[in-house]
Nucleic acid binder design. Structure first.
Length: 414
RNA sequence: GUGGGUGUAGCUCAGCUGGUUAGAGCGCCGGAUUGUGGUUCCGGAGGUCGCGGGUUCGACCCCCGUCACUCACCCCA
């Protein structure tokens, strides 16, 4: 049997109402907060991601779906949204208009990871990007939107973790201190962390190995090494969150994985998800524009993993649909008349269906029942001859005879 | 890339320490006379027991390999 590719999921008809709901909430809220939707390509030149995400990150090193185009250029399925948005913004000079500096997107991303609960090779993200605004209150706005998105969906028990990883300079100073502190006790750390010490020392902070957690209790704290600017900014963000009554936890270990982050970083976690507990995360990326040869532009954004959101949502997200009319036509004259009627009802904007195979009233009503019809419209030869139809309420079994010409008008009110 | 768990009907699962025709519930299809569904009753279809090899008189069951799914590590949304 042909199967789907590993790590890819079909979203089946039972689940699409839930997805539509999530997407509607995302679009509505983002719009309320002043963001406009942008739709960018699903693949880009590999260079874009290599440069923006960072050459030593796992994403770039081993998780990208990269392939050669016919002319030999290297293309990559987007592993995240920010890089593409920034590219599009630069390409179309969107920074020049105040109406196109706050953008949001919705769509699939691709990473070649080993699938796991809440982690897929094609997954969907809802993300926002606020560009060109340095003010700490935009950080607060973005986090407020993120929190409101989750609460609108009815998610509970979530924690907003926040930290500041400072500017590149701040971090250099800190990383130096950190390595200095860890050097003498390096042997006590796990093998992974011993390696990280030289490659990516910040990551040691969020190592889950107990020994490492223990020893890193005593390490210098990043926010103690922030420059005055970064520190003031961070404090203003925290004050802003408090002013809005948004609960947060300062998490000194929160260091984002992508190279382009700076200063404010945040993450929302749920205790109900197993190992992949982060459902949304983001932060500032003030230097990304320059990395991509654009003008120096402060920016902040977040991305939400939609599959993880669906895992937290109640299964029975039954969305109310408009009533379904089942047209039950049978007999030599009834059947054709019913088919025209079916078309007319649909043209009038109502939801209607039939069963072409059913030739007896019994079989047709059974089909109506299985399709979950609210009303059946019965057109047998008798009805066809008198130009009428029987309108049957499937729940109450109440029936009435309606003239064929008036039927669409008659049921419009149902 | 590394490790653990699982793999029997469309779905959820049963199948005793290896023993011959592999079962149940749900679902699906059909019937219970003449133009009225859901309930009930009756009947039916549907399975290379993931795949390949081995041990055995005999394997769904034991062994090896392989694939798939799944969870965890790594990392991330």
């Amino acid at each position: 049997m042909l199967r789907s590719v590993k790590g890819l999921k079909d979203i089946l008809p039972q689940q699409t109402p839930q997805w539509q709901h999530i997407e509607t909430v995302a679009r509505t809220l983002a719009t309320q907060y002043g963001f406009s939707e942008i739709r960018i390509p699903i693949f880009e030149f590999t260079e874009l991601y290599a440069r923006s995400i960072g050459g030593t990150t796992d994403i770039v090193e081993k998780e990208m779906y990269t392939f050669l185009d016919r002319d030999g250029s290297s293309l990559t399925l987007r592993p995240e949204g920010t890089a593409g948005v920034v590219r599009a913004v630069l390409e179309h000079k969107l920074l020049d208009s105040p109406t196109t500096r706050k953008l949001f997107y919705l769509g699939p991303m691709f990473r070649h990871e080993r699938p796991q609960a809440g982690r897929y090779r094609q997954f969907h993200q809802f993300g926002v990007e606020a560009l060109g605004i340095d003010h700490p209150l935009i950080d607060v706005e973005v986090m407020a939107l993120l929190c409101q998105f989750f609460s609108s969906l009815g998610l509970e028990d979530l924690t907003l973790h926040i930290n500041s990883i400072g500017t590149l300079n701040d971090r250099e100073v800190y990383i130096h201190k950190l390595k200095e502190f860890l050097s003498p006790i390096l042997k006590t750390l796990c093998g992974n962390c011993q390696r990280r010490h030289s490659t990516n020392p910040l990551r040691i902070l969020d190592c889950k190995v107990p020994v490492c957690q223990e020893t890193t209790q005593q390490t210098p704290i990043l926010i103690d090494y922030l420059s005055d600017n970064s520190r003031t900014h961070f404090q203003a963000v925290l004050d802003g969150l408090s002013a809005l009554d948004i609960a947060y936890t300062i998490n000194h270990r929160l260091v984002r994985g992508l190279d382009y982050y700076s200063r404010t970083t945040f993450e929302i976690t749920s205790p109900h998800l197993g190992a992949q507990s982060t459902i949304g995360a983001g932060g500032r990326y003030d230097s990304l524009f320059q990395v991509l040869h654009g003008p120096s532009t402060p920016a902040i954004g977040f991305a939400v993993g939609l599959e993880r959101v669906t895992l937290l949502l109640a299964e029975d997200q039954t969305t109310k649909k408009s009533p379904l009319f089942f047209v039950a036509g049978f007999g030599d004259t009834g059947k054709p008349k019913a088919f025209t009627l079916l078309y007319k009802i649909r043209q009038a904007g109502m939801r209607a269906d039939t069963d072409h195979k059913g030739n007896t009233l019994k079989a047709l009503l059974r089909s109506a029942d299985k399709l979950g019809a609210d009303y059946s419209i019965i057109v047998g030869d008798n009805e066809a001859d008198s130009n009428t139809a029987i309108l049957r309420n499937m729940q109450t079994k109440v029936q009435e005879i309606v003239n064929l010409e008036e039927i669409t008008q008659r049921i419009q009110k149902k």
